[in-house]
Design a protein around this nucleic acid. Structure first.
Lengths: 150, 150
DNA sequence: GTATGATCTTAGACTTAGTCTAACGAAGTT
DNA sequence: AACTTCGTTAGACTAAGTCTAAGATCATAC
């Protein structure tokens, strides 16, 4: 993904192109690991220390509002972000809180009767359990209390 | 739902019965509106001012761990809780952040190929859009910038 | 029935995540 | 060049939640 394309994306969404905004967007496109705002802020400033914390948060909000970025809330942890590339569902690890993509597949839409007068915008599946890493550490057989949630 | 049943639930899950814990659980069973921790704390103490903030949070965590209560994270807002009664999906309002139940219906499980070595515990649908209240205020035609997100 | 240890509760300090403010800077417009 | 709008900045602030150390309560053993 080249910088022209990103610039185009931003401008098509009515957002002025700025180096800080570009950096956030570029980082998200290159890192599909659902980083937190703090991680994005750090990473972006490590390469090019020109962005303040507030700007990172502002830009993330702008990008989410413009529909270029998705925010994923995780119970008891900081929100995570990803560039909206291919549509996908999300897997959240009970143990480490990491968010991973699950290949998209169609799920039936809620019946309009159960929606009532609500206006539907989108829906996605949230899958929970243990990620590959945590699953291998947590061999379920030997899970002892004192070890289980270290 | 009588107090004996709640007591039973707690003890079956290895949690000692205490008035504070009971209050939290009872409140959640009577209020299906997905309150936040702060709301639960306030409500419980309004009736019977015997519980501290820390205790409310501790008890919520215990109840979630015991599987009696579900925690729902919402982007940019406080977490919300509900007693795990009938299984259901969740609707989250983009505008006011309220969480509502959507009648349960089966959705196909992710293919084991796309799960890889992850261990699946549960999955649910998150539906987003505008709740009935906000939909009626937000008549899409007249949505002006200064009014839209008041 | 009282000593003991485990569990639970408390108030308030603390941490973390995120927002707000007021001043400054850069880009587009006339 | 002057104006206006939008974006950025540092740091103060807020909200949500956790931690700590001390005390209360319960279960069990004696």
């Amino acid at each position: 993904m080249d910088s022209e394309t990103i610039k185009q994306c931003l401008e098509d969404s009515g957002l002025r192109y700025t180096p800080q905004r570009y950096d956030v967007m570029a980082f998200l496109m290159e890192h599909s690991g659902h980083p937190t705002a703090a991680e994005i802020f750090e990473a972006v400033n490590r390469l090019d220390p020109r962005s303040s914390r507030a700007t990172t948060y502002n830009n993330l909000r702008d990008l989410v509002q413009a529909g270029l970025v998705r925010e994923v809330a995780v119970e008891g942890r900081a929100a995570r972000f990803d560039a909206k590339g291919m549509r996908h569902h999300h897997f959240i690890c009970d143990h480490c809180g990491n968010v991973e993509d699950i290949d998209w597949y169609d799920v039936p839409k809620p019946a309009s009767a159960s929606l009532g007068k609500r206006i539907l915008r989108e829906y996605e599946l949230i899958v929970r359990g243990l990620c590959t890493q945590c699953a291998s550490q947590h061999a379920p057989r030997q899970a002892r209390k004192s070890v289980a949630v270290g």
